[in-house]
Amino acid sequence: MSTPASRSGAMRAGDTDRIQVAQLLTDAAASGTLGLSEYESRLSRAYAAQTYDELDRLSADLPGAVTRGRGGPCRPAPSTLLLAILTGYERRGRWNVPRRLTTFALWGGGVVDLRYADFTSPEVDIRSYSIMGGQTILVPPEVNVDSRGVAVMGSFDHGVDGEGSAGAPLVRIRGFALWGSVGVKRKRRKAPADTAEG
């Protein structure tokens, strides 16, 4: 006969629980507690986890691991607008990815780097518009991508190399490019020593 504790650990985890563990893993990687390869491995398993037991096994040995509130709705970061008009923008490093993100470049350019970011929703909608400018969206290996946009005398990437992991966040990219470009690239994270070099 199972105990109440074992029954609750075998309960199905929700998106909020997976996102909380992913953020805890990112904290551990940022502090050097987890190496890059172990971080990426645990992160993929966290997004694919179905039960609280699976999530607890991935985070039990980390500082800050506590029994989280089980379930509840995701609370995405507020919608964000990134503008580059005759200039540029960069969104890099550790930041909270909102459920909806709009980017616009007019005679300018920008970079949205999702590799080190914290996802606050299992699905992210990015609307990207480039007019005589260029933008690049960098996604980490585990994230799933659906990119569809329209280009007139420019380019809008529809495909991205590689497949994401089951259960990982889905990033939908839509928009258009007029005499400009929207590039979508899957890139691995760099080890901390590599980041210092460039």
Rank of each mutant, 00 (worst) to 15 (best):
Leu24Ser: 02
Met11Phe: 10
Arg189Tyr: 05
Arg91Lys: 15
Ala22Asp: 09
Arg174Cys: 00
Glu54Trp: 04
Ala13Lys: 10
Pro73Met: 12
Gly9Ala: 12
Arg188Thr: 13
Leu82Val: 04
Phe104His: 07
Gly175Asn: 12
Val171Gly: 04
Gly167Val: 07
Thr33Trp: 02
Ala13Asp: 00
Asp194Ile: 03
Gly164Arg: 02
Ala49Met: 03
Thr16Ile: 08
Asp194Glu: 15
Leu83Asp: 12
Ala177Ile: 05
Glu163Leu: 10
Leu82Gln: 13
Ser44Ile: 11
Ala84Thr: 03
Ala177Lys: 01
Gly109Val: 00
Glu38Ile: 11
Leu55Trp: 07
Thr120Pro: 04
Leu170Ala: 04
Ser121Pro: 10
Val111Ala: 11
Ala196Ser: 12
Phe176Ala: 15
Gly133Met: 05
Ala48Cys: 02
Ala65Met: 09
Asp161Glu: 13
Val139Met: 05
Val112Pro: 05
Thr67His: 13
Ser79Thr: 12
Val111Pro: 05
Met153Asp: 08
Val112Asp: 08
Leu82Ile: 00
Glu123Phe: 05
Asp17His: 03
Gly93Cys: 10
Ala193Ile: 07
Arg45Tyr: 09
Phe156Asn: 00
Ser121Leu: 01
Thr80Gly: 05
Phe119Glu: 00
Ser155Lys: 09
Gly69Lys: 14
Asp113Glu: 07
Arg7Gln: 13
Val111Thr: 15
Leu83Lys: 11
Pro76Gln: 04
Trp95Lys: 08
Asn144Val: 06
Ala196Asp: 11
Gly109Lys: 02
Tyr47Asn: 02
Val182Met: 05
Ser59Val: 04
Pro122Lys: 00
Arg7Lys: 11
Asp161Val: 14
Gln50Arg: 14
Arg172Leu: 03
Tyr52Asn: 10
Ser6Tyr: 10
Val124Asp: 05
Thr87Pro: 04
Pro122Met: 01
Glu142Pro: 06
Trp95His: 10
Ile19Val: 05
Leu24Asn: 01
Arg94Phe: 09
Pro63His: 08
Pro76Met: 04
Thr16His: 12
Ala84Ile: 06
Ser37Pro: 04
Lys190Cys: 07
Leu170Pro: 07
Ser79Tyr: 03
Asp113Cys: 01
Glu197Trp: 11
Gly180Gln: 03
Asp15Met: 02
Ser121Ile: 07
Cys74Trp: 02
Ala191Val: 13
Ser79Leu: 05
Leu86Trp: 14
Tyr52Glu: 10
Arg172Tyr: 03
Gly69Val: 15
Thr67Glu: 15
Pro73Arg: 15
Ser121Asp: 14
Val97Cys: 13
Gly109Tyr: 01
Thr120Gln: 02
Ser147Glu: 01
Ser31Glu: 14
Thr80His: 13
Thr103Arg: 04
Ser181Met: 09
Ala177Leu: 02
Pro141Ser: 11
Thr136Met: 11
Ser128Pro: 03
Leu36Thr: 12
Arg42Glu: 06
Thr87Asp: 11
Phe176Glu: 09
Ser59Trp: 08
Met11Cys: 06
Thr26Tyr: 02
Val150Tyr: 11
Leu138Trp: 15
Glu163His: 14
Leu138Val: 06
